[in-house]
Every structure is written in structure tokens, then in C-alpha cells.
Simulated scan of single mutants.
Amino acid sequence: MDQREVRVAWENFVERGALSASLRSPVAASWQRSKNHQVTIDRARAPLVPEAELYRHRSKYASLRHAARSALESSGTFLSDANSMMILTDPSGLIIDTQGDARVIDAGRAVHLEHGGRWSESDIGTNAIGAAMAESKPVQIRGTEHFCSEIQRWTCAAVPIHDPADGELLGIVDISGPANTFNPQSLALAVSVGHHVESELAQSIRQDHENLLRQFLSKRSLWASDDCVVLDRRGMIVHATEHALSVVRGQRNFVGDAAPTQFLKAIPFDEWPIKLREILPNASFDLVRSESSDIGAIILLHARRRAAVVDRSSQTDLRSTEMPRRAAAAPKPAVTGFVANDPAVQAIVRQVETAAARKMPILIRGETGTGKEQLARHAHAASGR
């Protein structure tokens, strides 16, 4: 359908509620949702949140903004001549970052297509950001396909960004511009940027897991008598001893097929010890942070502790102090570190430690006298078995 035909179909839907069979299915479905949300066609602009609320949302999704930063910054160059802007929203459709043609960014303020604008379908009717959220797939909305008449001066293409670990919707990447500069390649560009952001997020997750395991291994000899669980910031289990895993999975608080600690993802990081103490009273907790982000936690289970667990670690970071050891248990010999001065050998040792912590099978090969047996012992010690 061309824009004139879409206009006629829109008028028929507004006046009589009849949907044209010729409409693209994402548009027809979005118009119906907009009507169900009781959005009026004369709504001239999206809602705009206060600065304090915008700051909270930008802080909450700092990792998403960091993953998208390079793509948004580069868009400031190649979109400046394309009469378009690139937008990043959080999962509610609230705009947290923009880059691109300064003239388009300035024009967007008239309809609150700017930082703090809310662009879900319930806020402003059919638009690519809201439709991509609702459909959970890439969507392009052009001109008169928008539900509200003032927004029909725009064209937009959007793609959802999902958490690579659990598939949760994290936000939307959108490319918007005046309707008279419609570019059918905008959707392909948005999809490409979305894939880039998800790739950056996946790399960040892998790095966080490596940092967690390094922190755990650096203290493992001090915790040799304790069962433990290593969690990332999403509440996913990165490493656990067999007994600790059975204890966590056996809690009555956990139901369904999700990871038993995944509920932590929705809880503020500083409140993790409080929530964990409710369900694991005989445990202590070490929150692990980097300089810029929350990474995860190490949980130690103390089977014979007589006193209530005291949390000493709500403000610890990658240089955090040791957790208390179980007083009633006889100390075990410390794990002897594998001494290596050569950078190549040090890299091999780190790989072995990581694989051992994850209980992955390890095959060690080499000439006689090269230290295979010592490395095998080190791997066994690092595995916590």
C-alpha cells in the first residue's frame, strides 16, 4: 500500500474500527493495540519523564548504554548526512540515548522524541519502538502508518535488544527521521546495530564470568572447607560445588524451570545479602564489583556455624577481603599455586584454572619432565573437589 492508501485505511479504522486486509500485519495489529490502550489520534507528543527519573533509568541500564556506545557514536557521523537519528531506549520504551543529525534531534523535541520520552504503544500509539516491543521483532513504521496524526510526520525502524544470557528484553534500537526522507535500508541498519549491541553484551558477560572465577580461585585455598556457589549479576550460576548446588536447588522458595537464583536479577545488588540470608541462613556472601559495575557474588555455605552469619561484604570489590572460614572445621592444607614465570605458561595455567572451576574435562599433554603432573594437581585443587 502507498501512503495515500494507508491514509484511507487509517481513516476507516478511526471512524468505523474496520481494518483493511491490505495493511501490513504489524501495522494492523499495532493500530488495534493502540485502540485497546485508548490512545486518541490527537495525542500530539509522547509523555516526558522528569530528569530525576531519566537519570535512574540511565543508571539502571548502564551496561546496555555501554554496549551501544560505539554504535551510537559512529552513527553521529554517518547519519548526520542522512537526515536521521539513532535512538536507544530501555525495555519500557523510555529514550535513554540519541545520536545523529542535530537538525533531526532538534525537531524530535517537538514530539518528545528525545531523552526521557516514553514511546510504548500505550503512551503514543503505533510507532516502531512500541511495535518492536510488542512484537518482539524488527519493525518499520512509515508516515501515515503511525496511529497519532502528529507522529505521522515521522518514519522509524526499530529492533529489540535481548539479553544474550536469558533472552530478556533489554531495550530498543531505533532509527527515525522525517517521513519525506524514508529509507527502506533503515531497518537493515537497525538490525545490524542491534546484533552488534547484543554481541558486545555477550562479550561483557564472558568477561564478568572470567573476573568472578579469578576472584574465586584467588581465595579458594582459604575456603577449601566450605561449599560454595558463584553467581553472576543476573543470578545465573557460574560455578558451584555439588553439595552447594543441591542445597540451593532444594530450597522451597524456588519453583519453575528457571535457574533457582535467577530471581536475584530483579533485586538491587546491595540487597542481595538480605534476600540470600532469608533462604540460606547458614551462609556468608561476598559481593564482587569492578570499578564500573556490579559483577556477581560468591556464596559460602557453613554447615556447622553456630552463630548468625554476619555480612562483611556489601561494599567489597575485586580486591575484597577474605570471607570467614568455618570455625568448627579442621583447616585443610592450602592449595599450592603453580609457579610459572613464562607469560605463555601463565596463560595456560589460567585456562586450566578456569576449565577446572567449571568442572570441564582437561587433557594435559607434553614431554616428560615438563610439569604435567604438577599442573594436573593444580587443576584438581582449583576444581574444589
Score class of each variant (00 low, 15 high):
Pro26Phe: 06
Pro26Val: 08
Pro26Lys: 07
Pro26Ala: 08
Val27Thr: 15
Ala28Pro: 08
Ala29Leu: 11
Ala29His: 07
Ala29Lys: 09
Ala29Gly: 10
Ser30Arg: 03
Trp31Glu: 00
Trp31Met: 05
Trp31Ala: 03
Trp31Arg: 04
Trp31Gly: 00
Trp31Phe: 11
Trp31Tyr: 06
Gln32Leu: 09
Arg33Trp: 04
Arg33Ile: 01
Arg33His: 02
Ser34Asn: 00
Ser34Leu: 02
Ser34Pro: 03
Lys35Pro: 02
Lys35Tyr: 04
Asn36Leu: 07
His37Trp: 11
His37Pro: 06
His37Asn: 10
His37Gln: 11
Gln38Lys: 09
Gln38Trp: 05
Val39Thr: 02
Val39Tyr: 00
Thr40Glu: 00
Thr40Ala: 03
Ile41Phe: 08
Asp42His: 04
Arg43Leu: 15
Arg43Phe: 05
Arg43His: 13
Arg43Lys: 14
Ala44Glu: 11
Ala44Pro: 06
Arg45Lys: 15
Arg45Phe: 14
Ala46Asn: 01
Ala46Val: 01
Pro47Asn: 06
Leu48Ile: 11
Val49Met: 01
Val49Leu: 00
Val49Cys: 00
Val49Glu: 03
Val49Gln: 02
Pro50Phe: 01
Pro50Gly: 08
Pro50Thr: 06
Pro50Trp: 07
Glu51Tyr: 05
Glu51Cys: 01
Glu51Asp: 02
Glu51His: 05
Ala52Phe: 06
Glu53Cys: 03
Leu54Gln: 03
Leu54Glu: 09
Leu54Cys: 05
Leu54Asp: 03
Tyr55Leu: 15
Tyr55His: 14
Tyr55Arg: 14
Tyr55Asn: 14
Arg56Ser: 14
Arg56Glu: 13
His57Tyr: 02
His57Gln: 01
Arg58Ile: 11
Arg58Trp: 09
Arg58Ser: 15
Ser59Gly: 11
Ser59Tyr: 10
Ser59His: 11
Tyr61Leu: 07
Tyr61Pro: 01
Ala62Met: 08
Ala62Cys: 04
Ala62Tyr: 07
Ala62Trp: 06
Ser63Glu: 08
Ser63Thr: 06
Ser63Arg: 08
Ser63Cys: 01
Ser63Phe: 11
Ser63Gly: 02
Leu64Gln: 12
Arg65Asp: 12
His66Cys: 12
His66Gly: 09
Ala67Ser: 01
Ala67Leu: 02
Ala67Arg: 00
Ala68Gln: 00
Ala68Ser: 05
Ala68Tyr: 03
Arg69Ala: 12
Arg69Asp: 12
Arg69Met: 09
Arg69His: 12
Arg69Gly: 10
Arg69Tyr: 09
Ser70Met: 10
Ala71Ser: 13
Ala71Gln: 10
Leu72Lys: 02
Leu72Ser: 03
Leu72Phe: 07
Ser75Gly: 09
Ser75Met: 07
Ser75Gln: 04
Ser75Cys: 05
Gly76Pro: 04
Gly76Cys: 00
Thr77Lys: 10
Leu79Lys: 05
Leu79Arg: 09
Ser80Leu: 06
Asp81Asn: 12
Asp81Thr: 13
Asp81Trp: 06
Ala82Gln: 13
Asn83Leu: 15
Asn83Tyr: 15
Ser84Glu: 10
Ser84Ala: 14
Met85Ala: 13
Met85Val: 13
Met86Leu: 13
Met86Phe: 08
